[in-house]
Amino acid sequence: MTNNRNVWVFIEQDEGRINDVSLELLSKAAELAQTLAGQVWAVLCGSEVADLAETAIQHGAARVLLADHPELALYRTLPYTRVIADLIRAHNPYAFLIGATPVGRDLAPRLASAVKCGLTADCTDLQIGDYTSKKESVTYKDLLYQIRPAFGGNVIATIVNPKTRPQMATVREGVMRRREPDAGRKGEVEPVSVSLHPEDLALQVLSREVREPTVHLKDAPVIVAGGAGVDSAEEFQLVRDLANALGGELGASRAAVDAGYISREHQVGQTGTTVRPRLYIAAGISGAIQHRAGMDQSNKIIAINTDPNAPIFQVAHYKIVGDLGEVLPLLIKALREKAK
């Protein structure tokens, strides 16, 4: 077992395009690797994807492990697990970061189970620090702090994996900031052999359909979001109307999505999209950390809620204690008057 401090990133690609979250994670990994005095390695799987290695290097990878094989063309759990678990066993990385996409959320737990390492889902921050186990009276140096909202997002937990390697974590898209690529960066590409077992091919993909996103929350300058305080589909229409009046995108808390007012694509928060708009209006959103973790970096926040003690007010720049049915029409009317 080599005593290395390398941070690995899974490069998720689909039909030759690298998912944004993988590039964001390369940026974060570069930062962590610097603290650890280790290297960033990228794991790239697919079929005829060698030219993507250069992109990974420009975004911070010192080495790209390239698994190129026809059976890896489309993501499937078992072949990808076979290849990556073998690589982990061969190189024993210190940490491994994976995007919390549908692919990453399928792959990471399977991998963690295969190599028997700890895994933390949906981290909102990653840091390096020490951990003293009181039970063992041992201090573990330079562990990966895996920080995430927990218990429905009402607390922030810092998780560590003191003994198992790699220290594995998934991170949602948009949480980490992506650095600009550096065309001058040099790195190595190491093709790896792929040996699959017959049982790895138990599942076949018959067909796939991928839609272009119709909701563009991540880069929206203005977002109006509705939550549990919205009493009816009619009242949710008022949230839509306000978004339209502002030329903004429509957001929602999980409660509004669960209530069926709006599709999951619109969900802002730890398990939805992380946003940093110029203006965020939270309409009837109580503000569990779950939600706040995805929007508290907004430039200006207006919160509207009937409950004066709602936690959302603590991150708001403008507080409006009142009924949505009254406040939203007033906002729409005031905007229309100004537009004239």
Binding site: K116, C117, G118, L119, T120, Y131, S133, Y145, Q146, A150, N154, V155, I156, A157, T158, I159, V160, N161, P162, K163, T164, I289, R292, I301, I302, P311, F313, Q314, V315, A316, H317, Y318, K319, I320, V321, G322, D323, E326, V327, L330
Partner: peptide
Amino acid sequence: SPTQVYKVNYVVLESTESKDIAP
């Protein structure tokens, strides 16, 4: 369990400087 909870912080929000707006 390979993962251990190092600490749990109840998030006590530092209130942002805010303005009350009358409805």
